[in-house]
Design a binder for these strands. Structure first.
Lengths: 201, 201
DNA sequence: CATTTTTGCTAACGAACGTTTGCTTAAATT
DNA sequence: AATTTAAGCAAACGTTCGTTAGCAAAAATG
């Protein structure tokens, strides 16, 4: 058995590429930057990867899967719209904080993909947003959320606010992902619900 | 009198550079891209600019000024925290929609600046966020907003949600900046206030 | 009208880019 | 131990990058 399997090395490269793409952007990161970060020469990377764009694709594709697969079961479940929303926020923040670099790259660097792959990612971004929107829509239709909400607009506001956590979150910071989720939900949900008398002073 | 003054040409370059930096990123846009967009050759730009980074700096610096100078008088005014917040949201969205490209570049491309300029912009970003935070803080201290708000956190959520408008807003779209401001404020403020009985069904 | 200034072109610079090629060393397999 | 396979290096490929230099046309100025 090898101390390091082929896949280990590849995962290291993906991890480092994700970190650098997230910090400096795709075009701001050279193959030699990635190689230097693991003490290799530029050309040596090509024993493990086929192209720079392939690296970006793998990072972005995996992030898309992570987001979608964490939200789908929540939307499909039989819970109330309000509980679905709480769970969706928590799930989104879990992906964002556990795969922080990938989340940043997924949100900001997909434009650098080839047209075909860019379209693929865009479609999955849209699908994810549609799932989230569906939760809000169900809440409105169930009479739990206010009828005058601009659901697509508020959905965007919620998702971009949540995504921004990927930029500033630090695992050693004062707030855990769960605390962030709670603070966000407490604020955001209060703006969605028809008035809850228990909130009165 | 000239049909085109020196400054006109320069402003055209800045406008086009802003559009391309916003669409493709700073590193994803070459000097030749910018030149080609106004039917010039790459080298010809240097009759009007001194460097590519200077272009980025001018765009980002002007955006920083626009944001700060629109928010400062609101924060300094004698209005209630609630009204300050409404005005701040509207002002932010006005800058974001009127100078859409500059706003996107200001938010996403400042990392490409030299360390000195990056620090300058970061300081002004922080100052802007602090002004916004101050409005929320005043609201909490005045007893208008809930005491259990995590003010710095909510401030970030609000600002990033508002900034995202720069990415998707289209002047010919269905929503005017004022309508976006209203929808956002209606939602966000309801989550901040201690319960308002007039909102009950 | 003569002259200075501005504007843009062509061509080129050195540097950095993503990627390929041979060769060498190290590891895994038989 | 012999042999196959993988990993990494050094060097170079052709291209593109930001930028500069020298020259020509055009415009503004006197």
């Amino acid at each position: 058995m090898a101390r390091r399997s082929h896949g280990d090395r590849r995962k290291t490269i993906l991890r480092v590429a994700g970190r650098l793409f997230s910090q400096q952007g795709y075009y701001g990161t050279s193959i030699r930057d990635i190689a230097a970060a693991i003490r290799l020469h530029g050309g040596s990377l090509y024993a493990h990867i086929t192209s720079k764009e392939e690296l970006l694709w793998e990072i972005v594709d995996e992030a898309a899967q992570a987001f979608l697969s964490s939200l789908e079961p929540i939307v499909r479940s039989e819970r109330s719209p309000l509980e679905k929303l709480r769970l969706a926020v928590a799930a989104h923040l879990q992906v964002v904080t556990e795969r922080q670099d990938a989340a940043v790259v997924f949100n900001h660097e997909w434009k650098a993909l080839s047209p075909r792959r860019r379209a693929d990612i865009l479609a999955r971004r849209d699908a994810y947003e549609a799932l989230f929107r569906q939760i809000l829509q169900e809440g409105v239709e169930a009479g739990i959320f206010r009828a005058d909400l601009n659901v697509p607009l508020i959905t965007r506001f919620i998702l971009t606010a949540l995504n921004s956590v990927a930029v500033w979150y630090r695992p050693k910071g004062p707030l855990s992902p769960e605390q962030i989720a709670e603070a966000f939900t407490d604020w955001a949900v209060r703006g969605l619900r028809r008035c809850d008398p228990s909130e009165a002073p």
